[in-house]
């Protein structure tokens, strides 16, 4: 199966990142200047335990293309 991607389409990806590990890791990626796609928006959470399914549903409801939970 192939997915046709329209030219100019920019996905919206939300990352919910735990402040103590994944968020710090994202900082470390920055410190090492590791390039990644600019479509990624990181929302800092105090812990991945904070993640409420409600937030994920809300994001999809508002038209987000992907959600990554990391912690």
């Amino acid at each position: 199966m192939s997915i046709d991607i329209q030219a100019g389409w920019e996905p919206k990806i939300i990352v919910f990142a735990c402040n103590w590990c994944s968020y710090a890791a994202a900082d470390l990626a920055g410190l090492n200047h590791l390039e990644y796609a600019a479509d990624i928006r990181i929302i800092r959470t105090p812990c991945s335990g904070r993640m409420d399914p409600m937030l994920v549903l809300r994001a999809f409801n508002r038209g987000v293309d992907g959600v990554l939970l990391s912690g």
Binding site: D27, G30, L34, E35, Y36, A38, R41
Partner: peptide
């Protein structure tokens, strides 16, 4: 708003990085 470690240092394209910074500020 983290526009250095999680934006300017990991994005090459100025236009994209600026737009990302704008939406991060909005959030």
């Amino acid at each position: 708003v983290n526009i250095r470690e999680q934006n300017s240092w990991v994005t090459h394209d100025r236009e994209q990085a600026t737009r990302k910074a704008q939406s991060l500020v909005r959030m």
